[in-house]
Every structure is written in C-alpha cells, then in structure tokens.
C-alpha cells in the first residue's frame, strides 16, 4: 500500500534533472592500495630472490611480472575508486560504479526489505563500513563499500525511514 509519496510531489520536481552524486571517502582507496602493496611487494622480492639464487640471473626477470602488476594496479584502483558514486533522490537510490564494466543500479526506497551495515576487522581498523541494500529480488546488487561509519549509519537510518514511508512489499 502506497503512502507518503503524494506529499513529496514538490521535491520530486528535481527527478528529471541530473542527480546530486556523492563519491566515496578516500579511505577505501588507501586500504585497497595498501593491500596491493602488501601482497605484491613481498611477492616481487620472493620471486626475484628465489629465482636469482636457484635458477640464475635471467630467470629472476620473472620478478618483473608482479612488479608490473603493482604498477598497473595502482592507477587502476584509483580509477575504480573514482567511478563509485551514489545519489539519494526523492524516491530512489542510485548507485553507479565500474570503469570498463559499468553498472548503474536504481532501487526505489519502497522496495527495500533490509538495509545492512557491515564492517570487517580490516575495515574497522581504517574507519570504514559498507552498506548493503536487500530487496525481494536476490539479483539486486546494491552495495556501497568504504563509507565512513557515521555516513553509513546516517544513510541506513534515512533509507529505513524512507523505506517505511513508501513501503510497497512485493
């Protein structure tokens, strides 16, 4: 049963206009780059040293592979991080992401069944939290990673409130 949408006719005037996008805080990029470095630098060193000692100097050139991965991954993570953005509109939430494989998701507030804020140990260490929206469709893939806990909670409360006001069920 639809309730509450009638009253919000005025703010919806902006629905046709370009939505106001919000990017992600820099923390997520830092964590991802840190992980990249933590994995690939020791790997480069290990491959270089082991092959250098046991197989000869030429073979040690294989250590350049993880190094290349590191150099390539560094800007890629930046591009991917910049591509993530979301916008709260009057009646739905927009999430846009991806550089090569772009994906844009729209979830009407009334369809949200559950809003979830999760934060793993590493994320907590860096003050990050991710927000996930669940609808009745399992295919709905609406996750916003790397938010600050305060923003994640604000968003969760706002979405829950809007979801209740516009609740529509199946």
């Amino acid at each position: 049963m639809e309730t509450g949408t009638e009253g919000t006719a005025a703010p919806r005037a902006g629905a046709g206009a370009e939505p106001v996008w919000t990017g992600l805080p820099r923390g997520l990029l830092k964590v991802r780059r840190l992980l990249l470095v933590l994995w690939l630098v020791p790997l480069t060193a290990a491959v270089g040293v082991l092959l250098g000692v046991f197989a000869g100097g030429v073979w040690a050139a294989f250590a350049l592979l993880p190094l290349a991965g590191l150099l390539w991954g560094w800007p890629m993570l930046g591009r991917n991080w910049r591509s993530w953005r979301y916008a709260e509109r009057a009646d739905d939430l927009l999430i846009s992401r991806g550089v090569l494989w772009r994906e844009e998701t729209i979830v009407p507030y009334g369809r949200m069944q559950l809003v979830e804020v999760t934060s793993g140990p590493l994320e907590r260490k860096f003050g990050l939290a991710s927000l996930q929206l669940h609808t009745a469709a399992a295919a709905t893939d609406a996750t916003i990673p790397g938010l600050t806990p305060a923003e994640a909670e604000r968003l969760r409360d706002r979405l829950t409130e809007l979801g209740e006001a516009r609740s529509a069920g199946l």
């Binding site: 494989w101 772009r102 994906e103 844009e104 998701t105 979830v107 709905t140 893939d141 609406a142």
Partner: peptide, 8 residues
C-alpha cells in the same frame, strides 16, 4: 524490485 544498467 530494482533496475540496473550494465555496459561492458
């Protein structure tokens, strides 16, 4: 329930 646009 939700609408998505994807582009490879």
């Amino acid at each position: 329930q939700s609408v998505r646009l994807t582009q490879g």
